[in-house]
Amino acid sequence: MLIKNLKLESKFNGLLAIVFIIALTLASLLLYGVFEQNAEAEITGKAKLIVETMNSVRDYTDSNIEPLLKDSLETEPAFLPETVPAFAATEIFQKLRKNEGYRSFFYKEATLNPTNLRDKVDEFEKILVEQFRNEPATKRLSGFRDLPGGRIFYIARPLTVNKNSCLRCHSTPDRAPKSQINTYGSEHGFGWNLGEIVAAQVVSVPAENVLNKAQDTLKTVMGVLLSVFGAIVLAINYLLRRAVIRPIRHLVRTAEAISLGDLDAEFEHQNKDEIGLLATAFDRMKSSLKISMSFLDIGEDRSI
C-alpha cells in the first residue's frame, strides 16, 4: 500500500537503488576474489625475485667466498659461517628486509637435516619438503598457513644438492672441516647426496598484507562505482523530470482546468514521444467535448 502512494520519481529511484545494491553486492563478491588473486600474484612475483636473488648469493658464496676461506676451516677453532651459502643468503635477506617494500617478508631455507638447527623444518615445512621429494616435477608450492602469530601466505621452492662442494660439509663427519665439528658437532647435517632435495626455500608474508591489499583495491573500485551510480541517478532524475514528470504534471493541470469548465486550456507538448501522443489524444478528447457541449447548448436554445 505504501508503494502505491509513492510518486513516480520515488518509485523509479527506489527500483534503481535495489538494482544497484544487488549488482554492487555481486560485483564486490566477484571482484574481491580477482583482487585477492592479483595481490597474491604481486607478492608471488616479489617472492620469486627474492628466491632468485638468494640463489645468486648462494652461487657467489659457493664460487667466490668458500674457496678463499676453505683452508681456514681446518685451522680456525670456530667454524666460519660466511662460507656457507645458506648463511650468506639468510644474512643478505635480513639486510634486504630493511627496505620498506620487503619489511614484511620472511625467508627460510627449511631443511630436513641441517647443520645449524636454526634452519630445521617445522612440521608444516617438513610436509612441503617431502612433497617436493615425492613429486620432483613440482617446482613451486604456495598457499596460506596458520601460525601462533597469525595467518601467513607462503611460497616455497625445492632446494637440491647440485654441487659436489656441498658434500664436503654434509656427506659424512670424517670429511667435514674440523671447525664445523667443533662448532656444530657431528650429529646433524650429514648424509646428504648429490641431486637430493634436502630443503625448501620458503618466503612468507603475513596474510593480512594480501587481504588488506585486495580490500583497499576493492574499496577504491566500489568508491568509483558509487560515484558513477550517483552521477547516473542525477542524470536520470533530471531527464525523468524534464521529459516525463513535468509534461505529465502539465497534462494533469490542463485536464483539471478543462474539468472545471475552461475549454480553452491547451495540452501543449511539442515532442512526438509517448507524452506528446497522450497530449494529442487529450486535445482530440477536448475537441470532442467542446463539440458535445455546443450540441447541448443548441438543444437548450431550441427547447426554449
Score class of each variant (00 low, 15 high):
residue 276 G to C: 05
residue 297 D to K: 15
residue 279 A to K: 07
residue 67 P to F: 11
residue 265 A to Q: 10
residue 117 L to N: 07
residue 198 V to L: 03
residue 157 R to L: 12
residue 11 K to G: 02
residue 212 N to E: 14
residue 225 L to M: 14
residue 112 L to Q: 03
residue 25 T to S: 15
residue 70 K to Q: 13
residue 219 K to C: 00
residue 104 S to Q: 12
residue 259 S to C: 05
residue 73 L to F: 04
residue 289 L to M: 11
residue 94 Q to R: 10
residue 236 I to H: 03
residue 265 A to E: 07
residue 214 A to G: 03
residue 100 E to I: 12
residue 287 S to W: 04
residue 228 V to K: 02
residue 207 A to I: 03
residue 204 S to V: 05
residue 60 Y to H: 12
residue 122 D to W: 05
residue 243 A to T: 10
residue 233 V to M: 08
residue 138 T to C: 06
residue 291 I to Y: 11
residue 97 R to H: 01
residue 43 I to C: 00
residue 188 H to L: 02
residue 100 E to K: 15
residue 268 E to S: 15
residue 118 R to S: 07
residue 238 Y to D: 06
residue 25 T to H: 06
residue 282 F to A: 12
residue 146 D to S: 15
residue 228 V to Q: 02
residue 164 N to G: 09
residue 83 T to Y: 02
residue 114 P to G: 03
residue 292 S to L: 08
residue 51 V to S: 08
residue 120 K to I: 07
residue 296 L to F: 10
residue 69 L to V: 08
residue 181 I to Y: 06
residue 173 P to K: 06
residue 71 D to G: 01
residue 296 L to M: 12
residue 176 A to Y: 01
residue 189 G to M: 00
residue 293 M to V: 08
residue 291 I to C: 01
residue 243 A to P: 00
residue 239 L to A: 14
residue 144 F to H: 08
residue 65 I to N: 04
residue 274 E to Q: 07
residue 255 A to P: 08
residue 39 A to W: 04
residue 11 K to N: 01
residue 97 R to E: 04
residue 52 E to D: 11
residue 211 L to S: 11
residue 277 L to D: 07
residue 77 P to F: 11
residue 229 F to W: 14
residue 291 I to H: 12
residue 227 S to Y: 06
residue 281 A to T: 13
residue 200 A to V: 04
residue 268 E to A: 15
residue 214 A to F: 04
residue 79 F to K: 05
residue 205 V to E: 03
residue 195 G to N: 06
residue 159 L to F: 09
residue 22 I to N: 03
residue 235 A to T: 14
residue 2 L to W: 10
residue 57 V to D: 06
residue 92 I to M: 15
residue 141 L to K: 05
residue 12 F to K: 01
residue 67 P to E: 08
residue 109 E to N: 14
residue 108 K to R: 09
residue 130 E to N: 12
residue 235 A to D: 04
residue 262 D to E: 11
residue 61 T to C: 04
residue 269 H to M: 05
residue 90 T to P: 00
residue 186 S to P: 03
residue 297 D to N: 13
residue 20 F to S: 13
residue 214 A to S: 07
residue 255 A to L: 13
residue 295 F to Q: 07
residue 129 V to Y: 00
residue 5 N to V: 07
residue 179 S to M: 09
residue 215 Q to Y: 08
residue 107 Y to Q: 02
residue 153 F to K: 01
residue 228 V to I: 13
residue 120 K to Y: 01
residue 81 P to S: 13
residue 222 M to L: 15
residue 187 E to T: 14
residue 36 E to Q: 13
residue 15 L to S: 11
residue 19 V to A: 14
residue 274 E to K: 04
residue 80 L to S: 10
residue 129 V to G: 00
residue 248 I to W: 08
residue 14 G to E: 02
residue 280 T to V: 07
residue 201 Q to M: 13
residue 106 F to V: 02
residue 109 E to A: 13
residue 163 K to C: 03
residue 105 F to R: 01
residue 236 I to F: 14
residue 123 E to Q: 09
residue 147 L to I: 13
residue 90 T to R: 14
residue 221 V to E: 08
residue 46 K to C: 01
residue 35 F to A: 06
residue 231 A to M: 09
residue 200 A to G: 05
residue 212 N to I: 09
residue 117 L to W: 02
residue 103 R to E: 11
residue 259 S to N: 12
residue 78 A to C: 08
residue 258 I to N: 09
residue 54 M to D: 05
residue 115 T to Q: 07
residue 4 K to F: 12
residue 122 D to K: 05
residue 112 L to A: 02
residue 58 R to W: 03
residue 100 E to L: 10
residue 56 S to H: 11
residue 182 N to I: 10
residue 235 A to G: 12
